[in-house]
Amino acid sequence: MNKLNIKQMLLDGILYKNPVLVQLLGLCSVLAVTTSVVNGFGMGAAATAVLVCSNLLISLLRKFIPKQVRIAAYIVIISGFVTMVELLIKAYLPALDKSLGVFIPLIVVNCMILARAEAFASKNKPLPSIIDGLTMGIGYTVALVAISFIREILGAGTLFGYNIMPKGFQPMLMAILPPGGFIILGSLIALMQKLMSLKGNKAATAKAEDTAIKTEIKAEEGNE
């Protein structure tokens, strides 16, 4: 695995194939836990840990799991790791456990993890699978932090729990209530689509210019 590929995978995970903002996977937990940056980051880190471990184990076992029962096998593997992460969070970060609540065990049914197991880990060697889990997990965490950043500043006027807005700021409570979650996530996905289409256009125009120059050169060569 060379360096370029890792960079490409990282870019894919964070931007082009972001599990939340582009692939729209695992939206339940995204909407539910992004009321503060700490929660968003905690959830992202927990899901990343589960994703990396499950990708590794599924990749190691990919030749032993029969095709017919693979989904059930994946779910058992994933829920095992989720239980471990849950117990660890309960033991060392009780405050986070309280604020994430039922959404830690619900990582089991996060479509992103099952999707990576099915699409990547079941077909690739352990090391690329770990890197895939890591990059996708980072993309997921980045999306969660971005959404919770906006929601926490608008809805509570704080960041990491500290007051950062000027005194006259009236927090827009709606942003941390469920409706705000839906609307802010929708707007972010729209922004992402806009950026993608802009980049797509740029690439298209660049390609067009490139071919135009090439044809000019060819024409000149022909003239000579």
Partner: peptide
């Protein structure tokens, strides 16, 4: 809607408005 809002973004915002009613 504007092009970048087509599909999922608009659906999410509509869900947000219904959620507002439910809140």
């Amino acid at each position: 809607p504007p092009k970048s809002f087509r599909g999922m973004p608009l659906a999410l915002i509509a869900a947000g408005l219904i959620a507002m009613a439910f809140s």
